[in-house]
Write a protein that binds this DNA or RNA. Structure first.
Lengths: 282, 282
DNA sequence: CGCTGTCTTGAACTGTCTCAACCATGGTGG
DNA sequence: CCACCATGGTTGAGACAGTTCAAGACAGCG
């Protein structure tokens, strides 16, 4: 795509990278504000300049294995965090929306353990890694914000484990949709009707199922009137029942709230967890 | 500490680290040193006291949903990080060994999103959450160390996603064992022969399979002479082949990887392909 | 317009879950 | 000292969900 250079971090001027210089360049005040930190409009943060980099749809922000000399905060758009095996299979690890930190997991090593690419026209704030110690001293709020962002990312990653753990495919999808809905809301967009930026295959990788299964799961959720789906456009019709479905664990006998009468796949959610070890449950 | 254990290869760590508190008590110098940060033995860190807390086997360090007013660093022992659904099912999210941070994912919220309990006699350094901002200013090395620890935790969590993603159960187990082996080495213990601190059920939860399947997978790996296993004692017989097995995605024999007509990108998430007894072994 | 990639749907195969019995260990107490 | 139970691990057999292979629908694009 971009160039043959795998090491192409924002710190270096990219030839074709039209680094957009806003009339007034971005500052750390913008970053802190985006992350929900109250900020003094005339304080140090507002006087500390910050690089903004645009990333085009499909473009890679970081390459797996490239020297990790910057971290990023998503300013706009959607990113895909993934790793590719030697056999070429892409394992998606996360999708990142506005205000999320990218590259945090590289702080403990020399090179990025994952690749990151943009799913649409996007932009990130760039923070050179070597600046971090100084920034933390000069701008304590930044250090704390960075901790917080990392914490959020970790919590998200654990949510994902939760999703993938041991659950029927439709339930996985339902859980993903709910989680995604919440994140859309956090970004100020409609939580009930949104456009998925990723394809079925990328989604299937995240959920840990075959892409055909994702397709079928969408169909099933539609048939249950929980959502309406047109390719990548999703509308959540009944968040409560969708939540109940997503929470559904096992127990094929009782189907209290959610079974419809005529559905083609009229089976219960069937989430095959292992027996909850009654000793513990009781 | 009971000498009844037939195999005690593990856990004898803490070189000269008297867990039962030194006369003076632990300081941040101990913590920083444990995390690999060079530390001035007469600096601020060495003069800042630090609480050490022992946690008995089976005891809970934090409860899910409890107010998150501290983070911890594992000083000795093994911990289990998990969430329990409303149906009583325990979803294990991670195991934590020495020098790992616990509760980092709570920094972005008011209460712990997970429960943490000790799998054996253990100990942690306790850092009250309200102290963190001050500590970061007084002891910049601590702030950076905290970032690093969080980063490591995130990287581990992504490793886990990688494991659980979409892979045959034996491969999942193999990947876990390799990863665990590396961590044991990081703790100064033998990477080839160790005692698992968790039961089959807890392991199965982490790997996202039924506990019976974990049992069978152990048997399979043994039958392939990759490991030797006696209940919870594991010995890795051939790390190279185990690695190849863990990396095995699909047929190891033919790999027309260079043609990009339809082979590489077309692969589906699941890489469960390998005959039980002969594909890789032969 | 045909091409290419994505998405959907169909049908057969198979790995894993589930249920179940069985075995090993350790603790308890008669 | 041994019967007994509790816990955790192993193993077997059937059923089903999901993968896999294959084909068709559809939209975007040179």
């Amino acid at each position: 795509m971009n160039s043959t250079d795998p090491i192409q971090i924002a710190t270096q001027r990219t030839p074709r990278g039209p680094i957009p210089t806003k009339p007034v360049g971005a500052t750390f005040a913008d970053l802190l504000q985006m992350s929900g930190v109250p900020v003094d409009p005339s304080g140090t943060a507002a006087r500390t300049p910050l690089t903004l980099r645009k990333v085009h749809a499909g473009e890679r922000l970081v390459h797996e294995g490239a020297p990790a000399n910057a971290i990023f905060f998503v300013c706009a758009g959607t990113f895909k965090v993934f790793r590719t095996d030697e056999d070429g299979y892409e394992q998606v690890l996360a999708f990142a929306l506005r205000s999320e930190v990218l590259g945090f997991d590289a702080l403990c090593m020399a090179s990025y353990p994952v690749a990151i690419s943009a799913l649409e026209e996007s932009a990130v704030y760039v923070i050179p890694r070597c600046d971090i110690p100084r920034l933390c001293e000069v701008l304590p709020a930044f250090g704390l914000m960075l901790q917080r962002s990392g914490s959020i990312t970790l919590a998200r990653s654990r949510e994902l484990v939760d999703i993938m753990a041991a659950v029927a495919s439709e339930v996985r999808l339902a859980r993903f949709l709910i989680r995604h809905s919440r994140r859309m809301a956090d970004c100020g967009q409609s939580p009930l009707r949104f456009l998925l930026r990723m394809g079925r295959r990328e989604l299937s990788s995240l959920l840990g199922v075959a892409h055909e299964t994702v397709s079928r799961s969408f169909t099933t959720l539609s048939a249950l009137d929980l959502i309406r789906v047109s390719v990548r456009e999703v509308e959540i019709l009944d968040m409560d029942r969708l939540g109940a479905f997503a929470r559904s664990t096992r127990r094929p006998m009782d189907a209290p709230v959610l079974v419809r009468t005529r559905t083609p796949a009229d089976r219960t959610p069937t989430q095959r967890r292992h027996a909850p070890s009654r000793s513990l449950a009781a």
